[in-house]
Design a protein around this nucleic acid. Structure first.
Lengths: 341, 341
DNA sequence: GTGAAAGCGCTAACAC
DNA sequence: GTGTTAGCGCTTTCAC
């Protein structure tokens, strides 16, 4: 079945010239005569010669491979980011290797090591919800360019591509206020993620700016961001003596759980309670009522991260100073906040 | 920033022994004395030595890398498959490299070549909807083990992991009949995919078995499987003089488009028209009414494909004969077919 | 314009 | 039990 592949030596022997000449001919080296080049390339095509990338990699100490670390593959947002990364990487001649951490810190540490051992040229990563210690990423950054996306930390002085979570939260909250809601609750994300903190800050400051009180009982944790959590948190909110009339959820899945709870209580969305999510997952436009949410440009984020990484990889001079690219979020207004006035 | 990595030579020099001894010590070779092993391993740990996988790969002519070709990353089913592949591969010490073809034949050809050049040990693939010529995969199969999943073809004599599409379609159709529907339409998938053909066959044969006529006007193409296609196809079905009272769609997205069309016409699901999808996408349980659909075990499919590939990769003797593993589908009954009787 | 030789980092056959 | 040597396939100095 397996036939051993054609090498440069084979071509050289066949043509009665030296391997180095063949190599140069294949790489279109100016020293080589046009005829030799033609001969070599013709034979290469005829014998189906394909360069051994592994040998080239060893030689050049480059693999043209980008390692990607993501929390989950089965996740609409992350899959769009990967798609963007793959697109840009492919077009720039890079290959993509990836690991999913399943939101486990331990797995993340192993993954970063494994990818480093593979001698990837650079890494694009979004760390797990469990991660609070960044030593493994520091080790990565000491050796190769690293670009973080979505989830970031001040502990790492590397380039980042993030979304304006504060702004997204602010426009979502403002929208609720503009729709006439005034008792706005928040289903909050994990506290160690800056993105969650920023969303909460956007929510709180927008309330203040509108002279609305920040009510601690209205802020409930939904750290895992599951439907179940959203459901139970919403139940608790509804049971409050002075129940909220709107909810800004840290993510769409929690928002959806909350919607279920609201419906189960026989309340109407958006008339009794309005609700907005965050992320614009695929299902958000499909559910009933359609969910108002903050769109994060996932594909664009992946593209930006890949572009930045490749820029750093190919920087001739010294390593470029880390940059932080902030992508705009967009409020997608749908039925879940379109209150009848 | 970048410090050149520690090599076996460095360890050897430091300890005043030869590189080969270091290599053997690191690989726990029985010839090496316990003390030497300890010395070497201690120093390796102290200097943070990590083997250069690229060099090992060149030496061993193996990369312990699995190449994956999928049509789309941003797709619930495929992302679950990738997740299963990654899980098994990771646990077996393999790395995963992937390319998405975006359902383009041309891109698929390039991707297979690129992965072969990367000297992947084996490949797992699901070909694009455009693909009718399989020469590029034959080339792959000539060199390394190849496992196809989900989408298959008789043109390739390789191991396959597929789902029992015929059975899935049959139980879905039978379920519609059992619910009292009798004029059942079908939104059909692309004809070159066996999975679509099998689903159609399951639909038709189940009708026949129940003494229901197969009505050509009731079978409409939804080759791309988009919501839009489903929507327009459904509109046409509704406009028929003798409109169907149920629909079996080739996939959930088309089914969802059809649901929109039905609602737009002021008809009720499931009372006027019942509907079932195929694939059990994430959103299917979230929409209103919840969609009855055939569940494909995506993660399990990825795992099975990876397990099979690794088995072939590690077969000591000769190459194992190709096998076809058929995974069972499950009908998930939800609201879209729960007719009030 | 082309060839010889060395080396990327690792391992294994062969010595002793 | 350890060292020497050679080679995986490629590129690149240095010769001529």
């Amino acid at each position: 079945m397996k036939k051993s592949a054609v090498t440069i030596k084979d071509l050289a022997k066949e043509l009665g010239i030296s391997p180095s000449t063949v190599s140069r001919a294949l790489n279109d080296h100016p020293d080589i005569s046009v005829e030799t080049k033609k001969e070599v390339n013709d034979l290469a095509k005829r014998l189906n010669y394909e360069p051994n990338v592994v040998a080239q990699n060893l030689r050049s100490q480059k693999t043209h491979t980008i390692g990607v670390i993501i929390p989950e593959i089965v996740h609409f947002f992350f899959s769009t980011v990967i798609s963007g990364i793959e697109e840009v990487a492919y077009n720039a001649g890079y290959t993509v290797m990836f690991c999913q951490t399943s939101e486990s810190y331990e797995r993340e540490v192993k993954d970063t090591k494994a990818l480093l051992n593979q001698r990837i040229d650079g890494m694009i990563a979004s760390f797990s919800k469990e991660t609070t210690n960044f030593d493994h990423f520091k080790e990565v950054a000491n050796k190769i360019p690293l670009v973080l996306f979505d989830r970031e930390t001040d502990d790492l002085d590397v380039s980042k591509v993030i979304v304006d979570d504060y702004y997204g939260a602010a426009i979502a909250t403002q929208h609720l206020i503009d729709q006439g809601y005034s008792k706005i609750a928040h289903l909050a994300g994990p506290e160690n993620l800056i993105i969650s903190a920023e969303r909460k800050r956007g929510y709180e400051e927008t309330l203040s700016k509108n002279n609305l009180r920040i009510t601690p009982e209205y802020i409930l944790p939904c750290f895992k961001g599951t439907m179940d959590e959203g459901y139970h948190a919403m139940k608790r909110l509804i049971d409050l003596p002075n129940r909220p009339d709107a909810v800004f959820a840290n993510n769409d899945m929690a928002a959806y759980g909350a919607m279920k709870a609201i419906k189960d209580e026989g309340l109407n969305i958006p008339n009794d309670i309005g609700i907005t999510g965050f992320s614009n997952w695929q299902f958000s436009s499909l559910i009933d009522p359609q969910l108002t949410t903050v769109a994060q440009p996932g594909v664009e984020m992946g593209r930006a991260a890949a572009r930045r990484l490749i820029l750093e990889l190919e920087a001739k001079n010294e390593t470029p100073k880390p940059t932080t690219q902030v992508l705009k979020t967009d409020l997608i207004i749908r039925e879940s906040t379109r209150k009848e006035k």
